[in-house]
Amino acid sequence: MADDRDFEVPMGMFQDLEDLKAQVTQLTAQVKALTAGAAADPGEALADDETTAGGDSSGDRPDDGEEWQYPPFILLLDPPAYDDELRALVEWVEGVLVPGYLAEPSADARWCHLWTEHTVAIARLHALWLAWQECTDPASCGYTGPSVWHRDHYDPCMRELRASNGPFQGCTKGEHQVEHRLPARVPSAWNDPGHGRTR
């Protein structure tokens, strides 16, 4: 019979166990929240359940007793909330994403330095940023969060944005074009002046 003191846990198994612990902790908190606050609206979470992922510069949770809401999709925000969220997004894209991830633009990997003028780019990058905030929090995603972010969020987003037929298809190093991406007919939901961001 082997001595338990000589048993070594492989590193991969240790990380898997830590991930499972984080998931159990999160599920336990969710069950408590659901049983304690059955009257809460769907889509809202108690402050204990999640950390904030919005563009708020403080990032603090509300005081005890207040409910915390997930950040809304940026294109559904009205000014000044839209402007604040876009400002925070620009800081992340220009401070983290561009210098850390994006190589020199090319015909096969396009990028527009005026990406904030492309509504599709804003929408995709905002979703990518929200996922980054969640997946880089070990309390909610364990040790595999960054890997999941790269596989499930970053890679597909960049494939779509930087593709030769993506939102930057008419933009080159010296030129910037937005009009080529505007659809001939806009769905009625986007005709609301509070939600349309067409420039």
Rank of each mutant, 00 (worst) to 15 (best):
P62K: 06
Q69P: 03
R61K: 15
P79K: 05
F73Q: 11
P80H: 02
L76Y: 09
P71R: 02
P79H: 06
I74R: 01
Y70G: 05
A88R: 01
R87V: 11
Y82K: 03
P62G: 07
L77H: 00
D84R: 09
F73Y: 10
P62Y: 06
W68S: 10
D78V: 10
Y70K: 08
L77C: 05
R61Y: 07
A81P: 03
S58W: 06
A88Q: 05
W68C: 11
P80N: 04
E67I: 15
L76W: 07
D78M: 08
D64E: 14
D83P: 00
D60H: 15
P72S: 11
D84E: 15
F73M: 10
W68G: 07
D83F: 01
D60G: 10
L77P: 01
R61A: 13
Y82T: 01
P79T: 08
D60C: 11
A88P: 04
A81H: 04
L75F: 05
Y70D: 08
G59Q: 11
Y70N: 06
R87T: 14
Y70I: 04
R87P: 08
P71D: 01
R61E: 08
E66F: 14
L76G: 11
D83R: 01
Y82E: 00
D60N: 13
D63K: 14
G65N: 03
R87F: 12
Y70R: 12
L75G: 08
L89H: 03
E67W: 13
